[in-house]
């Protein structure tokens, strides 16, 4: 479900290999992301470009994983969100909680 794309000294780039991110896969996704954070001990940059549907269960899983990351001095950064998905984050103000960038270049530029 989460494919590692590239490991860099200060972050791990991974792609969420799902079109429909919902109740069906939210718990498994959270467990995979938490395992990545634990195993690599660095920030995870998640490419969400494939996701066209996301529900509240998946948002809850993302927030749960972010809490785990922050508690371990790490972070989860989101890139390549489709407009609807970005609008969903903005609707419930999760764009103030997650670092969201247009693409990897924008993330690396911002640091």
């Amino acid at each position: 479900m989460i494919d590692i794309q590239e490991e860099r000294p200060d972050y791990l780039l991974a792609k969420v290999n799902l079109m429909e991110a919902n109740l069906n896969n939210a718990d498994k996704f959270r467990d995979e992301l938490v395992n990545l954070l634990n195993k690599y001990g660095k920030r995870v940059v998640l490419d969400l470009s494939k996701i066209t549907y996301m529900d509240s269960s998946f948002l809850g899983a993302l927030v749960s994983a972010l809490k785990h990351a922050i508690a371990n001095s790490s972070d989860v950064i989101l890139i390549h969100l489709k407009k609807d998905i970005h609008d969903l984050f903005a609707l419930i103000r999760l764009d103030k909680v997650f670092k969201i960038h247009k693409n990897l270049e924008a993330f690396t530029t911002a640091g």
């Binding site: 509240s56 419930i92 909680v97």
Partner: peptide, 12 residues
């Protein structure tokens, strides 16, 4: 982040 809910359905 620690003071944010993980349940968003009704809010959405």
């Amino acid at each position: 982040i620690n003071n944010i809910t993980e349940h968003f359905g009704l809010l959405i």
